[in-house]
């Protein structure tokens, strides 16, 4: 039970057919994500990292190979509400309060009112937004809105968190803070996290494994295991170990001809 991977992809391919001919968004992706992993996907635009995440979430259908999530197909996993998905934009409904937004998936999933209240309170504490339940999204900063959207993804206790560049639109200072919070949250909740990013420092700081991808066709060029300890203060980013991993990621991106446009 504990040995089987949470997400397992084997020879996974996805080809989009467009008017300009086929686009090989993903080709021969083989990867296992174990329980409790924090896996980052990094690579330039068009390398398929977001597409891969969307395949895990059953938002795109692969055209070849196999993938299982929690041992079942992505569709079954989605219907069993196995994962929470955090998009690049917070996507909070302006007509709902922060609490109401977090309540939204709970209403859809049929939690009763008391359970909703309890969960909203709990996840708001988890992302350090307690006291903001009655506020409306426009009353919050961009970083706080994204934290609320993470709380919403956590509210129904899915074991897997899929995050698609959740901090991409935020400034560096806010991003550092949220990265630190996300690590704390990951440690407390022991979720399995798949995290798409453009940023090398972000990927290295957060991850237990970093998957380097390259475009045309979208494929994995390298998987780097991080030797960094689970306990990671922000200043770990100045240690030689951190810089070494960052260097390897950069080399991996270069080796995949990622940036030779």
């Amino acid at each position: 039970m504990t040995t089987s991977p949470v997400i397992s992809a084997k020879d996974l391919s996805l080809t989009f057919h467009t008017d300009d001919g086929p686009i090989h968004a993903l080709q021969d992706i083989t990867l296992d994500i174990e329980k409790g992993d924090f896996v980052s996907f990094i690579g330039p635009s068009g390398c398929g990292k977001t597409t891969f995440l969307r395949v895990m979430a059953d938002l795109e259908q692969p055209t070849g190979g196999e993938i299982t999530v929690n041992g079942v197909s992505p569709e079954e996993a989605r219907k069993a509400r196995a994962y929470g998905y955090v998009f690049q934009a917070a996507g909070l409904y302006p007509w709902r309060t922060i609490g109401g937004n977090i309540r939204l998936p709970l209403e859809i999933m049929g939690f009763d009112r008391a359970a909703q209240d309890e969960r909203v309170k709990r996840v708001l504490e988890l992302v350090e937004l307690d006291g903001f339940e009655k506020k409306y999204p426009w009353q919050l900063s961009g970083g706080m809105q994204q934290r609320a959207s993470i709380a919403r993804a956590l509210a129904f206790d899915a074991d897997i968190l899929l995050m698609d560049e959740p901090f991409g639109a935020l400034d560096e200072i806010v991003r550092d803070h949220l990265n630190e919070q996300l690590l704390k949250l990951w440690k407390r909740t022991e979720k399995t996290i798949a995290f798409v990013t453009h940023s090398i420092p972000e990927a290295v700081y957060l991850s237990t494994r970093i998957v380097v991808m390259s475009p045309r066709p979208g494929r994995i060029s390298e998987v780097i295991e991080s030797p960094l300890p689970k306990e990671r203060p922000l200043d770990i980013r100045d240690t030689p170990e951190f810089l070494d991993v960052a260097h390897r990621v950069r080399e991996g991106l270069r080796a995949g001809h990622a940036y030779d446009e």
Binding site: L59, R78, R81
Partner: peptide
């Protein structure tokens, strides 16, 4: 994105 989000919740 909003529609995908609804789909992830199996609405």
């Amino acid at each position: 994105m909003q529609l995908d989000q609804m789909k992830t919740w199996h609405a």
